[in-house]
Simulated scan of single mutants.
Amino acid sequence: MWLIVKALISAAVIVAVAELSSRLPRLGALLLTLPIISILAFIMAWNKDHDMIAISKLARETLVLVPLGLPFFVPLAMSSKTGLSFWPSFGLGVVLATLTIGAWFRFGPQVSP
């Protein structure tokens, strides 16, 4: 039951951002930038295991990986200047984020499980 509740909460956030962003892009972006999913994930992880060490590790990894994922947005934000449509911009963003995050996993410090 708890798994279904978590899925519904996550879906509601995604739908809210998608709906809001078409009418009020700035408000949609604000909602998107709030770490709502992270907050929910931390709460759900705490409720499940009460393991502060695991939550601390998750927070440290998230702190590093969030900036590394930001290149995803660059082609989408620059699409009006580059002339790229949605899918090429989206694909290029995925490639850029994959490169930065992949480089971190390959060359960054190794984390023990």
Rank of each mutant, 00 (worst) to 15 (best):
P113D: 14
L99G: 09
W87K: 09
A12F: 12
E61F: 09
L30R: 05
T33D: 14
V95T: 08
N47K: 14
S85P: 08
S10I: 07
I55M: 13
A77L: 12
G108R: 00
L92T: 04
V5R: 15
G69H: 12
V111C: 01
L84V: 07
I37Q: 03
G83H: 06
R60V: 03
T98F: 13
A16N: 04
E61I: 00
P88W: 09
I39K: 06
I36T: 12
M78K: 04
P113S: 13
V95G: 01
Q110P: 05
S21V: 01
L31N: 04
L20I: 03
I37N: 06
P25T: 11
L68T: 02
G28E: 06
V13M: 12
T82S: 04
P67S: 05
D49C: 00
P88M: 01
S21H: 09
I4P: 05
L8F: 14
L24Q: 11
P67N: 04
T100A: 09
I43A: 15
A59W: 13
L96I: 07
L20M: 12
L40G: 03
P71Q: 08
I53F: 02
F90D: 01
L76Q: 04
Q110L: 01
M78P: 02
S10D: 07
A29G: 07
S85H: 10
M78G: 05
L32C: 00
G91F: 10
H50D: 15
R23H: 12
G69P: 01
D49H: 07
L30G: 13
V94N: 04
F107G: 00
A11L: 06
M1A: 15
V94F: 13
T98H: 03
V111G: 00
S85K: 15
P109V: 03
R23M: 09
A45T: 03
F90A: 08
P88E: 04
M1L: 13
V66Y: 15
F107R: 01
L68G: 02
A29L: 12
V94T: 07
T100I: 09
S21C: 02
V95L: 14
L65R: 02
